[in-house]
Amino acid sequence: MLSTEDDILRAAEAWRHEGRSVALATVIETWGSAPRPVGSHLLIDADGLFLGSVSGGCVEGDVITEALDVIGDGRPRTLEFGVADETAWRVGLSCGGRIRIFVERVD
């Protein structure tokens, strides 16, 4: 039952109440064939445990790495992934789409 966006946001609240440091990643824009729709979430804690998905597995590793920095300094970041942007990011989306992801700490 943890597959819907609703459950991710409830889990975010629950994780914070457990005292865990948490970052929330959200797909805010997609171009072309993107694997997950706008509004999809990935929830990450300070140990790198995660729930949900923003790309179906293609870029989660890099989002988690960035999320740990966000948890560290509290500064939100916007990340962009896609084959058209390979100079900026070493990972890409095999489907050829592009996505923009907003990562924020849950304070």
Binding site: D6, L9, R10, A12, E13, R16, L24, E104, R105, V106, D107
Partner: peptide
């Protein structure tokens, strides 16, 4: 996101 914003968001959805 502030925790109180998240809590209020989840309450509206519930």
């Amino acid at each position: 996101m502030r925790l109180d914003t998240l809590t209020a968001l989840n309450a509206e959805r519930a």
